[in-house]
């Protein structure tokens, strides 16, 4: 608490609150607007933030249920949103589990073992992580195109390719987990090894149970990143029923046929769980994200 206070502090406080409230409303406006639009009738409806013609049409369509208008016409859902969401979650869960496994074992070696080439490997991983995957898309496309000729589930237009391709981006997670491992005293494992445990057993039965929190964080982080992944999925996936949400959602706002209302409902439906999950876990996620300087 500061001891010296200027006299005008009350006015300033009021000013600060006003400025913050104005700014926050400006920031939150687009999000409230989308929620409002999702309940409006029709695809081009305009109006106030609280909808005048309340309608569940867009929500029904987003959930894949055909909607009957008051004039009797039946509207079919334009896109399989729930299927896209399911694809996204499927890919994200599998790739997050694999990433977690790869990152944990290597973080263990980097944190606890001495071996040749450790420093250059760690630094090199960090440097290579900065190269955006968009630039390698031609090469990755060629790789999976060729692989698909021999291994069907790794070809273009498969979720396998998308999952496997995400395994290149583990450096950030290795650094996060390594930092946590180093904060745990190694004497516990050493005691176990004196008692005859192997290196693997010390890792599996002593260190891993102690590191559950950071593993959860890395899992969520990898999950969120995978859900949001766009460039790779846009090249590797082709068929409509194979798309992930990040690639599929843009079809609502195609240049010739914009379905603003339908998009709003789908966006709230799919965006809300991710947003809420992010806010609940923000304390841990933000630590990880700001350390690496990545968002996307």
């Amino acid at each position: 608490m500061a001891m010296v206070q200027p006299r005008s502090v009350g006015v300033r406080r009021l000013g600060a609150h006003l400025a913050l409230i104005c700014f926050v409303s400006l920031i939150v406006f687009p999000l409230l607007l989308v929620i409002s639009i999702s309940f409006r009738e029709g695809n081009f409806a305009t109006g106030s933030l609280i909808p005048e013609n309340f309608s569940l049409e867009h929500w029904s369509l987003a959930l894949g249920i055909p909607w009957e208008r008051t004039d009797g016409t039946i509207v079919q859902p334009p896109f399989p949103v729930l299927l896209w969401l399911w694809n996204s979650i499927k890919v994200a869960v599998v790739s997050s589990v694999l990433i977690l496994m790869l990152a944990t074992t290597s973080a263990y070696a980097f944190a606890r073992m001495r071996f040749k080439g450790k420093e250059p490997l760690l630094k090199g991983m960090l440097i290579f992580q900065m190269f955006p995957a968009v630039l390698s898309l031609v090469a990755l496309y060629a790789l999976f195109d060729r692989l698909g000729q021999f291994v069907g589930w790794l070809g273009i237009n498969t979720h396998g390719a998308l999952i496997v391709a995400s395994l290149g981006a583990v450096a950030l997670h290795i650094w996060t987990i390594k930092g946590y491992f180093e904060s745990i005293d190694g004497s516990l494992e050493e005691a176990a090894m004196v008692d005859g445990a192997s290196t693997w057993q010390a890792f599996r039965y002593i260190l891993l149970p102690l590191s559950i929190p950071i593993l959860m964080v890395v899992f969520i982080l990898a999950f969120v990143m995978s859900i949001m992944e766009y460039p790779m999925a846009s090249v590797l996936l082709v068929d409509e029923h194979k798309l992930t949400l990040a690639v599929g959602a843009q079809q609502y706002l195609a240049d010739h046929n914009q379905r603003w209302g339908n998009f709003a409902a789908a966006a709230v439906l799919s965006g809300l769980p991710i947003t809420v999950a992010f806010l609940i876990c923000q304390r841990w996620i933000i630590g990880g994200l700001t350390a690496g300087g990545v968002k996307g």
Binding site: S270, G271, T275
Partner: peptide, 12 residues
């Protein structure tokens, strides 16, 4: 804005 998935807010 950080919590909402970017591909959704950009489309909004």
């Amino acid at each position: 804005p950080y919590a909402v998935p970017a591909f959704i807010s950009i489309l909004i």
